[in-house]
Design a protein around this nucleic acid. Sequence first.
DNA 1: CGGAATCCAGTAAGATACTG
DNA 2: CAGTATCTTACTGGATTCCG
Lengths: 140, 140
Amino acid sequence: MSDTHTGVPSVVAAPLPTPVPADEHEQCPVTDVLRRIGDKWTVLVVVLLGRRPYRFNELHRGIQGISQRMLTRTLRALEDDGLVRREVFPTVPPGVEYSLTPLGESLLVPLSAVADWAVGHRDEIARARLAAGAGPDRPE
Amino acid sequence: MSDTHTGVPSVVAAPLPTPVPADEHEQCPVTDVLRRIGDKWTVLVVVLLGRRPYRFNELHRGIQGISQRMLTRTLRALEDDGLVRREVFPTVPPGVEYSLTPLGESLLVPLSAVADWAVGHRDEIARARLAAGAGPDRPE
DNA sequence: CGGAATCCAGTAAGATACTG
DNA sequence: CAGTATCTTACTGGATTCCG
């Protein structure tokens, strides 16, 4: 830590020469990943699959509130990114099992960092929001 | 590492007794934070402000592609959450400076973890996506 | 059981123009 | 300079129905 006033390591503080070259920030892998795990259900699914493999309806019941459509889409997206493996068992009735790939499991690590931060600062954030809403005049 | 088959620590692997109690997962602080930093511009703004304070139009030019509207909304949301501080200098013309609060700076740490993961596995993900798109028959 | 297909509402995001 | 106001479009997510 030596080139910013915050002692933060890694790519976040490293590259990005002040004038952001983000003309095509669309393809920035960081934003890309964040937008994927930033959706409504992905994290929940990944965390569950991090515990053990699940079958489709098992996840559907387990998550409660998710629609089949969203569960399907979420799983498909994760599968396409190589984070989740889908295995079909030709039984009757057919069974499909979902599990994390090694890549998917590796995601649990940084995910934990964010989760810990979120849990650790939830009160602080909640208070800030209250102050913002009730404090000065917030027109609508 | 002792209660799951992945060696992942922290809240991600800790609570969540297999049957998810996520009836009100809406208020889950983890999902909450992820959805905020999962939007299109937040991370970019936070990272920039992590380098040094910025003025509004300075950010506007620096990010390139963002509209005033989105920059304003992003900054406002971050301010409301207590991650960004907004200081007005009563000069002519008026100047407004944005900077990270200590809370905001602390976010850079878990953010770095995710960013490093994203950068470190971008190729792997890209290959998986190609394989998913070109591999089996992907209708549309 | 494990989806796919269709439809539909709500919100996020962009362009543009105007203001203190 | 630092926004706000308005309009329009694109995407996300949910409900329902149907199929192998």
